[in-house]
């Protein structure tokens, strides 16, 4: 939520007499009844107003990510267990409880809130603070965790220094032993989910009767991938190769160090757009595998070095 709007709501609430707050919130009519009931009215107005702002933020952020989800970059982390360890069937409530406790024990002034979403995932909102600093409610991190999967989606808002604490809390709460960042990032959470959960494969295998499978499979996969990549905006390539050109002028031939570049492709229909390059004469055919391997490698961030 816009910081100014959040601050505006908070300050407005501070001016309203405590007894009238619930009445006013009902008149404002932007929080559903079920959520109004969760607000603890018998606390100091400072925390009360903070609770309301947070409820608004969760509502707005959910709406925001569904309707205009192109503002922040999501990254994906994959967690692994010790080899041979059984699939853990621990309860989501236990996970939440333990996650919150670990973070609060390590950083003391951390504000953690949860919201269950319809697709079996939990959204976690974290406002970071330190033992000496109150949580900053405007620079928050969002984490989306699907129970029974090793994947965590994280959207950081500027503050990056708490990543180690966050990873530690995720591993301990989910009883995992290792966590790594995947080379996959996007402005669109849904396209990342589709790639890591391999939803396109599931669709093609489960929904089509075996007799038709061979002929329609290709079509179905293509169609599903297309609709996924309508949302997948970016492809990054970090080049760390030597500079070489076809020109015979000897430019930078002596240079041993790599010529450092970061290349980023973006389009509302990335895969379609890349496919159209060769027919348009802009790219040589066939298209470089670098540009086409996102779905099966579950990777859209590449580092290219000299072979």
């Amino acid at each position: 939520m816009d910081e100014i709007v959040a601050e505006f709501i908070r300050r407005t609430l501070l001016k309203i007499p405590a007894v009238d707050i619930l009445k006013i919130l009902k008149i404002w009519n932007f929080l559903p009844e079920s959520q109004l009931e969760t607000i603890k009215l018998h606390q100091c107005k400072e925390s009360l107003s903070q609770d309301v702002v947070e409820l608004c933020q969760v509502i707005i952020i959910n709406w925001y990510h569904q309707t205009c989800p192109n503002r922040k970059i999501w990254t994906v982390y994959e967690m692994t267990k010790f080899p041979g360890e059984e699939v853990d069937l621990s309860d989501m409530e236990e996970f939440k409880d333990s996650f919150k406790k670990i973070l609060q024990r390590n950083l003391r002034n951390v504000h953690v809130s949860f919201r269950d979403s319809e697709d079996n995932a939990v959204w976690i909102r974290i406002a970071w603070g330190t033992p000496h600093m109150k949580p900053n409610q405007y620079k928050t991190t969002y984490v989306v965790y699907h129970s029974q999967t090793p994947f965590v989606f994280i959207c950081h808002c500027r503050i990056k220094r708490y990543i180690p604490e966050l990873c530690q809390a995720l591993m301990t709460a989910g009883s995992y032993h290792k966590i790594r960042q995947m080379e996959l990032r996007s402005l669109y959470l849904d396209s990342l989910k589709a790639i890591v959960f391999k939803q396109y494969n599931q669709v093609s295998h489960s929904l089509i009767p075996p007799s038709q499978k061979l002929s329609t499979q290709v079509y179905t996969i293509g169609r599903v991938i297309n609709c996924l990549f309508k949302m997948c905006l970016l492809l990054f390539s970090q080049l760390e190769t030597k500079f070489k050109t076809n020109s015979k002028k000897g430019i930078l031939v002596e240079r041993e160090e790599p010529f450092r570049c970061l290349v980023k492709f973006s389009s509302p229909h990335l895969l379609e757009a890349l496919k159209s390059l060769a027919p348009a004469g802009i790219a040589d055919a066939p298209l470089s595998s670098l540009l086409t391997c996102i779905p099966h490698k579950a990777k859209n961030y590449f580092t290219i070095r000299e072979k």
Binding site: R260, C261, L262, V263, K264, F265, S266, S267, P268, E272
Partner: peptide, 10 residues
């Protein structure tokens, strides 16, 4: 759809 290519050099 259009495609944007950003080419950033150190």
């Amino acid at each position: 759809q259009s495609l944007d290519i950003s080419y950033a050099i150190h």
